[in-house]
Design a protein around this nucleic acid. Structure first.
Ligand SMILES: [Mn+2]
Ligand SMILES: [Mn+2]
Ligand SMILES: [Zn+2]
Ligand SMILES: [Zn+2]
Lengths: 145, 145
DNA sequence: TTATATTTGCAACTTAGTTGCATTTAATAA
DNA sequence: TTATTAAATGCAACTAAGTTGCAAATATAA
């Protein structure tokens, strides 16, 4: 199975042990094209995992540059897979995120950079994030039927 | 006192009763130039108010267009005073927000509009928000001393 | 002044996430 | 192949943010 190998390679690169739990959680991220919360993962994983283990795995993956937090209006933190340019040293997620107000999923729009805005005198920028809300492709297509 | 009158006028316009609690909470918003969380308000108000009352007041003020939620990376929701163009029907907060990574305060940058980004085919935008992180004016000036 | 809808406070609850600690296990070395 | 050990997992108990139901208090209008 190709994707299992890729998943394992990701973990190896991050110097993480190849555990069933980590493989399962990564598999869930690969399955969905949008950002996932603790609850999403807990619901999608067949063999029940402990809450603490899921939260700790998410934190570890984030630290190692495998996933990144996605700013969102929901009350749970959501994470999405990083692209290969993210490392344990720096997250390279300068892309916008899109939250669908219909299906409530949040997508990384990897090929849309966050525009920079000139700030008032005295303020200096380090990093920006941008969340666009609206209707996603799938929901727009469903509405046409 | 001028600002008390202004505060009362705001409440009147919103069809809200002029209660001591509401006047106190609004006064706190007028005192600080940045967005406030429940905790900020709870700490700044001299006569202790019930937690539930504070949360309910914030919700009421938001519904009436007096304050707006500010997207933030902290774990508490923060609110800032709306400018006069916000109404109970629509919040008009298309400006960017700036979060200082040194003092952790979040400012409305009212005169900087959120730039629009063309979305991939199929996605339609309804609303965007943008959070710029960096060092605020006060913190930058302190660093120069 | 009284009547009434609104607001407030208290207690109990929920939801998201964390901490400490004992047990298990993946990876490495003998 | 087995033993060693640092890392990972699970359980229980906890914290922090926010909510709900209900009874008591109060701002406003008659
Ligand atoms: Mn992303
Ligand atoms: Mn604002
Ligand atoms: Zn959608
Ligand atoms: Zn600052």
């Amino acid at each position: 199975m190709k994707s299992l190998e890729e998943t394992d390679a990701l973990l190896k690169e991050a110097n993480l042990k190849l555990t069933p739990t980590r493989r399962r959680i990564l598999k869930v991220f690969r399955k969905y094209p949008f950002a996932l919360s603790y609850n999403d993962i807990n619901d999608s994983v067949k063999e029940k995992l402990d809450k603490v283990t899921i939260y700790r795995t998410l934190k570890t993956f984030e630290e190692k540059g495998i996933i990144h937090q996605v700013l969102d209006t929901s009350s749970q933190v959501k994470y999405a897979l990083c692209n290969s340019s993210c490392s344990k040293h720096e997250h390279q997620d300068a892309h916008i995120h899109f939250k669908c107000t219909s299906c409530h999923q949040t997508y990384c729009i990897e090929d849309r950079e966050i525009p920079s805005v000139p700030l008032p005198k005295g303020f200096t920028e380090v990093h920006s994030s941008m969340l666009v809300e609206g209707i996603c492709k799938d929901c727009n297509e469903l509405a046409l039927l």
